[in-house]
Write a protein that binds this DNA or RNA. Structure first.
Length: 652
DNA sequence: CAGTTCACGACAA
DNA sequence: CGTGAACTG
């Protein structure tokens, strides 16, 4: 993957840096790159279809580092659907993985867990469901994210072009071909990495004078030597490709020359492959979080707009009328709304008819067994977990958050670490009212801000605020109603069967399809779930407990007397309510410091996207909807944007 | 021999 | 990703 041999050639301009130099800026992060690394810490659980919080912990650790230690605004970008040019390679990889997985499982069953472990590592696959788990964390934490319609690479470069991010964290050298200006690679846990700037290209040695090539020539070069979209020509590496381009300029000339000399064997349809590759590099579909529409990385020139092949390889988009993905040239024919929901992580990126479900929650729903948590958590045992199991039965609010147990555990762990650090770093204990800091309960209280432990909140005002905010990170949609019945089917009848390891690897496909009637942008209000719908659902008691989060949101949606009853303010609310301006570690209040607008944490106009901006079903919000707090929400906002610690340690 | 491509093994987590 | 084997001129 990537451009073989590119990074070594760029060695002269690779600059070791620390993230300090990005203080106050926003950086795009290749979400799947992190997921892949994180997945190695729990390959076994992932392959066996068992719950885990490890990969989330990885994200939390790193996101905390970025935000707290370096004051950087992370902008997570996840891959979406595969584009045509890459689909076959994707399939091959999948095949390899399933191959390894089978071997791993065979070894596992044979009892050879040692060797099985190695093969688990080789078959690690990251799924959109895992991304969703991270996404829900982002929603709670007010971290920006987007699910790219296709490749994250193109999406991230687009964000950079638009000035929404000032740099890109990724391991992929492809980024530079897409036009990335600032690439940060090899980022460590401590925030050190390698920076590659486009502006430094002129400093490259004459051996590899990249700056003397125009963008098109660069694409020619990498296509010759091989990239994600072309196999390249055998025996031609980056350097010979460079020479060829310098000599003959265009791909046409190069191919002619090569064929004349006969030294190299040019694959038959290489030229066509190249053509498609350049399309994908330049015009790949991306999602514009500002306008809430699908666009292309670069604008498609008029003379190419009639090229059908182009629209096939830059990514097929959803047609507004057909409700299928196709090569659509006309922007107004594109269903931007559905793509917005994909970008928000609401719908499955490769099958928009399916709701995207957090992997860990899905596991909770399909196997009723209580999740196997990483470890019983030595410190302060009994505080948080029992806390949750207690309140779960008492109050719906704790289960209504849509946050899985894994998330709780993961967040809790990180919180503990952070508090540990805080403890070390601050010798002045008086800073805040921390009298209760060291009591075992503290962690539990700390958690409450994520999970709406409403009874801890003093005022009625806050209570409402929290419940409305806490409901669920997933936008509350009418689609929940049909889903409920599906889930009922899948969970109620077959509980005993589903327990245990039964679903090895086959846990994926759930009947979460949305009826096509719901795909239209106009949703009859009759689709809003009714009390009858819910009460007639034949849940067992346990089921309803597990499912209460969904049910809750539905109830809440009904009772909410918000102006827009089809789609409660859900995430917009959530992030608005929970945007604290700074994590508690720093003393400097950054709220005010962001004069340059780089840090637009809570009220920032640029912050509106990640999910709140996404148009909701059947509503037509103004294009540049800025989540300006209404007078009604303003006071709540005020109370909300206390420092995190204040929030944690208030009320008891 | 210098320059280059390519296949392998190792990382890290 | 870095290494070394293998190939070329």
């Amino acid at each position: 993957m990537g451009i073989q041999g590119l990074l070594p050639q760029l060695k002269p301009i690779q600059q070791p840096i620390t993230l300090i130099r990005y203080e106050g800026q926003t950086l795009a992060i290749d979400g799947y790159a992190w997921l892949h690394r994180a997945a190695h810490s729990c390959a076994e659980e992932l392959a066996l279809g068992r719950p885990t919080s490890k990969y989330l912990e990885f994200f939390i650790k790193r996101l905390n580092m970025l935000r707290n230690r370096f004051n950087i605004n992370p902008y997570l970008v996840f891959d979406g659907d595969a584009i045509m040019v890459k689909k076959d390679t994707e399939l091959k990889r999948k095949q390899k993985r399933t191959e390894n997985k089978e071997r791993a499982l065979a070894l596992w069953k044979a009892g050879d867990k040692r060797q099985a472990y190695d093969y688990f590592q080789k078959c690690v696959d990251v799924t959109p469901e895992m991304a969703k788990c991270v996404i829900e964390y982002c929603q709670v934490q007010n971290i920006k994210y987007v699910v790219a319609p296709f490749e994250a690479d193109a999406q991230m470069v687009y964000l950079e072009k638009k000035g929404l991010v000032q740099g890109i964290i990724s391991e992929d050298s492809d980024l530079l071909i897409f036009g990335c200006r600032k690439l940060i690679t090899k980022l460590t846990d401590h925030g050190e990495g390698i920076e590659i700037c486009r502006d430094d290209f002129p400093r490259l040695p004459s051996k590899f004078p990249l700056s003397q090539l125009c963008p098109e020539e660069i694409r020619t070069m990498v296509c010759l030597s091989g990239c994600d979209y072309t196999a390249g020509i055998p025996k031609i590496g980056l350097l010979t490709a460079m020479k060829l381009v310098r000599k003959h300029k265009t791909m046409d000339n190069i191919i002619k020359s090569l064929q004349r000399e006969g030294k190299f064997t040019v694959p038959k349809d290489f030229l066509a492959e190249y053509q498609l590759a350049t399309f994908a590099f330049q015009f790949q579909r991306v999602y514009c979080p500002e306008s809430g529409t699908m666009t292309t990385l670069s604008e498609i020139p008029d003379e190419l707009r009639s090229c059908q092949a182009l629209f096939n390889c830059i990514g097929r988009v959803i047609s507004k009328t057909e409700h299928t993905k196709g090569a659509i040239a006309d922007d107004s024919e594109v269903d931007h709304h559905l793509h917005g929901r994909i970008a928000a992580g609401e719908l499955c990126p490769y099958n928009f008819q399916r709701v995207l479900v957090n992997r860990e929650r899905k596991l909770q729903l399909t196997t009723k067994s209580e999740p196997i948590i990483g470890k019983p958590s030595v410190s302060q045992t009994g505080s948080i977990d029992t806390f949750f199991s207690k309140t779960a039965s008492v109050s719906v609010s704790s289960t209504s958050t849509g946050v899985t147990t894994q998330m709780r555990v993961a967040i809790k762990k990180q919180e503990e670490k952070q508090m540990e650090n805080e403890r070390k770093m601050t010798s002045t204990v008086e800073r805040r009212k921390l009298s209760r800091r060291d009591t075992p309960v503290v962690a539990g209280v700390g958690m409450s801000r994520y999970f709406g432990k409403t009874e801890d909140l003093p005022s009625e005002q806050n209570k409402n605020a929290t419940t409305s905010a806490m409901r669920t990170p997933t936008p509350v949609e009418p689609t929940i109603s049909p889903r409920l019945s599906d889930l009922a089917k899948s969970t109620s009848g077959s509980n005993s069967v589903l327990c245990g390891n039964e679903g090895l690897g086959s846990q994926d496909e759930e009947a979460t399809d949305i009826p096509s009637s719901l795909l239209s942008t106009e949703v009859p209000s009759s689709m809003v779930p009714t009390q009858v719908d819910l009460e007639s659902s034949p849940f067992s008691e346990e089921d309803s407990e597990v499912l209460s989060e969904i049910e809750d949101t539905a109830k809440f949606d009904r009772n909410e007397k918000a102006p827009n009853k089809r789609h409660c303010r859900s995430i917009a609310d959530l992030r608005e309510s929970f945007s604290y301006h700074r994590a508690p570690l720093q003393d400097k209040s950054v709220n005010v410091a962001s004069g340059n607008g780089a840090l637009h944490n809570s009220k920032g106009e640029k912050n509106q996207f990640a999910a709140g901006k996404v148009p909701s079903l059947g509503t037509k919000r103004p294009r540049h909807y800025v989540a300006s707090p209404s007078s009604a929400t303003a006071p709540r906002q005020a109370t909300r944007t206390l420092s995190l610690s204040d929030f944690i340690y208030r009320g008891q």
